[in-house]
């Protein structure tokens, strides 16, 4: 793996920072920042699943649950505290803690992959159903009413830490979200280079072998699952700040399914792929939303089927291959191994 030495790590970080900064500053010139903010938030959500699924081999069908928990935590804590700094921290910690509990239950119970997918899916659907029933005045947390189907509107938006009056929305919110995504991306890169990350990839490749090397895979998977949930929670908080309302639909089946589609389309087992996948699929979805001829879900389903059939490794690995081919002049494109292959970085 090319990422193991100190020098290549520094180069990797440099490339990510420079490219990231160019994208953060350049994209507002060609697209509307309101939409870009959403793409960035979804990119972070996709990255959270890309980390645990693409690198840890944990297929979580309910990543939306942690996204929604982050958003609700941000809204509820915001109403009770009146300022957004602590709520932002809580929106990372609460989903991570919930995931640690749920993960411990699943991984220490030695559940197979299929049951893991089912349990995470059902977990998010339970939250979805339950929150839909919380319309009455009896359902309050502190000063915040859960509001059932209508959700919670009117909570404090993101503000400059310590200055509740300086709220961030519009362009500033875009820059905050984009920089947050860049920082999370760098943290994920660092995590994957660390011993913990390298062993997590080993667990993805062969769980039994890694446990026979003396590693406690249950604990490691639980920790990774919680980290993924924390990132999803942060994305949820930013989403709440962007949408200015949180509703139970955050926990819906459609939301969960979309995250998985983003990862497949973008490229599993890469860091950049899921972020790219989220941006591409969401852009297509928003564009299609402007017309009434084709049903949106139908088109998303078609995209997924086409990708699984013709580009099973996703966009990012193919782009990386093209790039290698372009800078390598007349050398042949490097073919790497199919879907669950090594750390093909895009």
């Amino acid at each position: 793996m090319a990422m193991t030495t100190g020098r290549s790590a520094a180069r990797d970080t440099g490339v990510v920072v420079i490219l990231g900064a160019l994208l953060v500053l350049g994209l507002p010139l060609v697209a509307d920042t309101n939409m870009l903010t959403l793409l960035v938030i979804y990119g972070m959500l996709a990255l959270s699943l890309g980390l645990i699924w693409g690198f840890g081999g944990i297929l979580c069908f309910g990543q939306a649950a942690f996204f929604g928990l982050g958003a609700y935590t941000f809204a509820i804590a915001g109403i009770n505290i009146g300022e957004s700094t602590l709520p932002l921290v809580l929106s990372v910690l609460v989903p991570a803690a919930v995931a640690a509990l749920l993960g411990a239950f699943m991984f220490y119970g030695r559940l197979g992959d299929v049951y893991l997918a089912v349990i995470t899916l059902v977990f998010s659907l339970i939250l979805f159903r339950w929150l839909n029933t919380t319309a009455g005045p009896a359902y309050v947390i502190g000063n915040a009413r859960l509001g059932g189907f209508n959700g919670i509107p009117g909570f404090p938006l993101l503000n400059v830490p310590g200055y509740p009056r300086w709220e961030l929305w519009g362009d500033p919110l875009y820059y905050v979200a984009a920089v947050a995504l860049l920082v999370v991306f760098l943290l994920v890169s660092w995590l994957l280079r660390s011993s913990f990350g390298r062993i997590a990839i080993g667990i993805r490749e062969n769980e039994e072998r890694v446990s026979l090397l003396g590693y406690d895979i249950r604990a490691r998977k639980t920790v990774l699952f919680a980290i993924g949930a924390g990132i999803a929670g942060l994305a949820g908080a930013l989403f709440a700040a962007w949408a200015e309302v949180v509703t139970p639909s955050l926990f819906s089946l459609q939301q969960s399914a979309e995250i998985i589609i983003w990862c497949i389309v973008g490229g599993l087992g890469t860091r950049f792929g899921p972020v790219l996948g989220a941006a591409v699929v969401t852009s297509v979805k928003i564009t299609l939303g402007g017309q009434a001829m084709l049903d949106n879900m139908l088109v998303l389903g078609l995209i997924l089927v086409l990708f699984v059939l013709f580009l099973p490794r996703g966009i990012a690995p193919e782009l990386a291959r093209l790039w290698a081919w372009a800078i390598g002049g007349n050398r042949k494109p490097v073919r790497r191994r199919a879907p669950r292959g090594g750390v093909a970085d895009g």
């Binding site: 390298r198 990839i201 080993g202 072998r209 090397l213 003396g214």
Partner: peptide, 29 residues
């Protein structure tokens, strides 16, 4: 994993390695 962690090296009948990783990465782990 607790037995292996004591300093017991184990190799099962069916060869079991991390297929998607390099030889160096496998042994490093």
């Amino acid at each position: 994993h607790r037995i292996a962690a004591m300093g017991v090296g184990i190799k099962m009948q069916v060869s079991s390695v991390m297929d998607g990783l390099s030889v160096q990465e496998n042994i490093w782990m």
